[in-house]
């Protein structure tokens, strides 16, 4: 059986579990909806000058996406430890397949969240996007990096005390390069440009994060 099929088995397990339990989905979507509502009430469509809107709204969008993701994505491994199923996983499945499967599930969850959040953001804040293709590329590349780092850190902190605080503390410096690049690229996409350099940086970040996660998966999850 191929490595992809084994990782897919983990992803399908997480998806089925989530559809039956709805813990991460509710947390992520509820946070995104709340943050979106608060931002729209605070700033509204008329609260900013036209020239200030693209950079500020790009930053706000990624802040919402990042913190919404941070409420649900770290559950990937933490939930396994909390319910005691981590031992069964470690006993039977190599860490790298578990990490790959959970990353895939988190990536799908992130893309689903953006598919709901971005239209809401556009309506509530009258956000106009110049290049939808560029925005889609940014979400695909940026979301993957965020999913990889969040899932890996989840494995790392799963057995630690104060894991939620620890996750945010470690995640902040690690995802900062990704967030800065994604915000700048989103700003360019808003103005109708295709942010090739920004997307290259995001893809490079994805590659580096994936390699690091692959090499450290066993250390983070099994040791």
């Amino acid at each position: 059986m191929s490595a992809l099929a084994r990782a897919w088995a983990v992803c399908a397990k997480d998806a089925t579990q989530e559809l039956r339990r709805k813990v991460a989905i509710v947390a992520v979507f509820f946070f995104a909806a709340t943050a979106l509502a608060l931002v729209s009430f605070g700033i509204g469509p008329f609260g900013l000058r036209a020239e200030d809107r693209p950079p500020l709204l790009s930053a706000l969008l990624w802040i919402i996406l990042f913190f919404a993701a941070a409420t649900g994505l770290p559950r990937a491994f933490v939930a396994e430890e909390e319910t005691g199923t981590g031992l069964a996983l470690r006993k039977t499945i190599p860490a790298v397949y578990v990490l790959a499967g959970k990353t895939l599930f988190n990536y799908i969850l992130f893309l689903a969240m953006t598919a709901v959040t971005i239209p809401g953001f556009m309506i509530l804040l009258e956000w106009r996007i110049g290049s939808f293709g560029a925005l889609a590329a940014i979400m695909v590349a940026g979301g993957f990096g965020l999913a990889v780092v969040s899932t890996f850190l989840s494995a790392l902190v799963a057995r630690a005390g104060q894991r939620n605080v620890l996750f945010v503390l470690i995640a902040f410096p690690l995802v900062m390069p990704l967030l800065v690049s994604a915000i700048q690229a989103t700003n360019q996409a808003t103005n109708g440009q295709f942010p090739l350099d920004g997307i290259r940086i995001l893809i490079a970040y994805d590659g580096a994060a994936s390699c690091a996660a692959y090499m450290l998966a066993a250390v983070a999850w099994e040791d």
Binding site: T16, T83, L87
Partner: peptide
């Protein structure tokens, strides 16, 4: 062991099927 837990949201068959699939067998 006493601290081994399987997935509560799944049936017993689904649990075993998952571990067999994910282990490549």
């Amino acid at each position: 062991g006493p601290d081994l837990a399987l997935y509560g949201e799944f049936t017993a068959i689904e649990n075993l099927a998952f571990f067999r699939r994910a282990a490549g067998r």
